[in-house]
Amino acid sequence: MRRGWMALAAMGLASGAARADDIAQKAAVCTACHGETGVPIDKAIPVLWGQNEGYIYIELRDMKKGARKNDQMSQVVNELSRDDMLALAAYFAAKPWTNLNQPRAASAEQTQFDSMARSAGCVGCHQEGYKGAGTQPRLAGQSVAYLEKTMLDFRSGARTNNAWMKDLLQTYSPADILEMARVLAGL
């Protein structure tokens, strides 16, 4: 997973100027892991193509200022200005969502998920269909491994940049969370 991305990072960000035609070059750093055609090189890396613009920006911002800790991302974000972050967010949000062809959940699981989700009011932020909007991320069709890790990390406090998500997910068991990840991934 780490093969060559450091070299790409140095190459892509050498200029530092946030011109529109630089964005594709800057984005090369991202596609090294998040995939040149949108399919990430590893199941643990999230789909970026088609993710919501505000959310991408907020995560880049939070990782740069240390509100969210992520070893793989820390080198990348340090080179990005706010304008870079907004431009990259717009660039990836404009791409079509990547279909990872993950299996759809059984209807019994779906029904149980609906009940769990209603309890916490997930659609209030993540919208009907779990595609999110603005600064709220799309969950539908995201990598199941990434969803599981993210929700468990919120629950444990390992992911630190959303206290509300932590509080909400602490009211579910890890088994509940794995089931929710499976259903969301299959949407």
Partner: peptide, 20 residues
């Protein structure tokens, strides 16, 4: 559940849950 000011994110200081 206490948490510090989150810089423009949702800040409930806990959670509400419907009793299914």
């Amino acid at each position: 559940d206490s948490s510090p000011y989150p810089d423009g994110k949702l800040w409930l200081g806990g959670a509400f849950k419907i009793i299914p």
